[in-house]
Nucleic acid binder design. Structure first.
Lengths: 145, 145
DNA sequence: ATCATAAAGGATAAAATTATCCTTTATTAT
DNA sequence: ATAATAAAGGATAATTTTATCCTTTATGAT
């Protein structure tokens, strides 16, 4: 459903939100260790998320990744869009070019119901809300390792 | 949602069903051309589907791939399971090892709804039923190319 | 100003997925 | 029996995804 990269991205973003809730910026290395992903690869993913303005970053000492008011309304859908693109949400699920209402693939109508549920799942709560639910900083590792 | 290989597999199986409806066996090459997939790769996919008994095959002249009574009740879920495995249906969608009711990931409960819809989509009709709906032999190309 | 720190970015490598080619095996037609 | 046909299977290659390493740029601390 989600690429491995996207799974990392989701975990990373929630961790950043959690740490921002207690006023902490976090480094790529720390994030990688927390979410059990290679740190250099995590850094690459974070670059994309920063460019797409899903999270913010600062360079230098005391720098790191964080979120502020401007990121509060972001959702998991934004993360998935940034990393995996819109394939989950749009286009023929069998990869047909001319799939349409009048010339539908065998999944054309059923996939709509599925996508409605997926979009609901990924937008019903903001990333901030999700982060608040995950638990305090000491339990994050238990959930993400 | 589905790997490219799985998309090929779905199209191939529906095409085989359609041709079996009119009593025809079909070769890997013909299938590949019909579904717009490389034929050698299509042949590999078909090998798996035969082993998993999603379709049948015969070697030699007049040979090819087909389905009979024994395949009638197979569904798209069987195809997806054979090619992509059960990742869509089971396990943590974020790839966490210890994700559970008591220690759930942020998607743990929502993903269940999505999976229910996915399973419905992939099992509500048999492959045979789907094939019957796709149209007659002359329109298949328009749908799959 | 200088140094240390951390993100950004470029180049490269490893692994997995997708794709091709060739040989072997089974089956049919002659 | 022999030849022709088509799936099965093995080996290899191309592409994409995932991962690593090193240099550059920005920022803060001293």
């Amino acid at each position: 459903m989600f690429s491995k990269t996207c799974q990392y991205a989701i975990k990373a973003v929630i961790y950043i939100h959690k740490q921002s809730l207690v006023g902490k910026k976090v480094g790529a290395k720390e994030i990688g260790q927390e979410i059990d992903a290679p740190d250099a690869f995590t850094a690459k993913i974070l670059q994309i998320l920063v460019r797409q303005q899903v999270v913010g970053s600062f360079k230098g000492p005391t720098g790191g990744f964080f979120v502020d008011k401007s990121h509060e309304s972001k959702t998991l859908k934004d993360v998935v869009m940034a990393i995996d693109g819109d394939g989950l949400f749009h286009g023929c699920s069998l990869g047909l070019k001319q799939c349409s209402e009048v010339n539908p693939c065998p999944l054309h109508f059923e996939i709509s119901n599925v996508r409605t549920k997926i979009i609901h799942m990924l937008t019903v709560k903001s990333l901030k809300q999700l982060a608040e639910e995950v638990g305090d900083g000491t339990t994050v590792l238990a959930r993400f390792a």
